[in-house]
Design a protein around this nucleic acid. Structure first.
Lengths: 229, 229
DNA sequence: CGACGGCTTGTTGTATACCGTGAGAGGGTA
DNA sequence: TACCCTCTCACGGTATACAACAAGCCGTCG
């Protein structure tokens, strides 16, 4: 019923075929290996991923629920595209959810944990070879702490969907170093505000951060278009 | 591949078995026919709904994604419960999403449509036999107009999930007539504010409305508990 | 020469068979 | 009598077989 799947460090984990198919397809769509418009035929993908059609269908269903895949016609599923309009829409939802999350975290979060995060943000070194990756890992920790502080499964679930799409957005518009540095200090402020239980500041700093991030991404996108034309 | 399913007014629609199973289970969970804790075995439900296990599994998967059903143990899926804590969490998400939606609708919505809705809210007659049902139908129209005005698929999708749970919440705490009347005028104000393109008022009126609605629901729930004990 | 129609083929939706696992019951032993 | 071990059975996960539908292609007819 389950198959053994090698996971990091010799650790062997029982994983369902449908989960493996979902994880693989998700990663491939997010990383751009499967570009928007790619047709995902059930038999093809099932053969490619080494699972049968039934678990693959389940994986496609979950991807469709996430919005990463859509039924273009009743007979063909494709990887969805993502354009500037989508990015604006995603950021509208992000603003709504993350401002609320920041506010709630400031009210009920673990102040010490966010003080520690603020400290970590202050120590981020973007100069190193893979400094950006380390920063993204720190962001992930921050998001996890936010979820834990808010302690709201419904909010967390909504944010999960948004974050799933955000991975693709990040790939579309590679951040420039200046923006990355600014983003670090913005995050530091948000974490500090939460640690200080200043809900208004946390919310407004989040608003500012998202505004700047959106501007940067849309700017990078425009540059790409000009460069391509 | 498809089966014929009778839908209202002699209209016959081709519907997939998995969609029928999903729709039926959704309706039964929302209406309380399937109460929280009910075990949903695949073979049982497949037999009961007259579909085979495959489309039923797909339906259960969608319900699980919605949060209406959960895998209690790796072997048994049950209808999820919903308590006061869940309701508070849902309303936190509602506040975040609907305040934003109201704001965005005020900025870019069709003013005439919301002026008409405000007019309709003013004419609601809760005195008639099924006045409450008519009001709920009007709410649904309002929600649909809001979605159309906001024109944000990601926001709409997030709201859809919340609204799915809200149906159950409404059932748990039957609104009293006084609250219903207040709710009508609150909605009228929101619609008017959107029509007047007053984003702040729309957002704040939404905040107030959700606050009152939550208070009313939690109050009704407490009364129920006291009555039951 | 063009258009219409039927057939072929590939795809999805559904049903069902198969297998491994886990839980529960029953019996045996301490 | 109580606890533990084992056997069995049922369920979920997966694979595969089957059916229906859609689209493309080729042949024929106007």
């Amino acid at each position: 019923m389950y198959t053994l799947t090698e996971v990091r460090d010799e650790e062997v984990v029982r994983m369902r075929a449908s989960d493996r198919a979902y994880a693989t397809l998700l990663e491939e769509i997010q990383s751009g290996v499967l570009s928007p418009g790619t047709v995902l035929g059930e038999v093809d993908q099932a053969a490619r991923l080494g699972v049968s059609r039934t678990p693959l269908r389940e994986a496609l269903g979950r991807l469709a629920a996430d919005g990463l895949v859509a039924q273009q016609s009743p007979r063909v599923t494709v990887v969805t595209a993502i354009d500037a309009g989508d990015i604006r829409e995603i950021f509208e939802v992000r603003r709504a959810l993350e401002e609320s999350a920041a506010r709630l975290a400031a009210e009920r979060g673990d102040a010490a944990a966010f003080a520690a995060l603020a400290h970590d943000f202050a120590r981020v070194d973007l100069g190193t070879a893979r400094g950006a990756d380390g920063y993204y890992a720190l962001i992930a920790r921050f998001d996890a702490s936010l979820d834990a502080a808010v302690a709201n499964d419904y909010l967390t679930a909504a944010l999960r969907t948004v974050r799933t799409h955000l991975v693709r957005v990040r790939r579309l518009a590679r951040d420039n170093p200046a923006r990355l540095a600014a983003s670090v200090s913005e995050h530091r402020l948000i974490a500090s505000a939460i640690a200080a239980r200043d809900a208004d500041l946390a919310a407004h700093a989040t608003h500012v951060h998202l505004h700047n991030a959106l501007e940067s991404i849309l700017g990078a996108l425009e540059l790409d278009q000009k460069g391509a034309s």
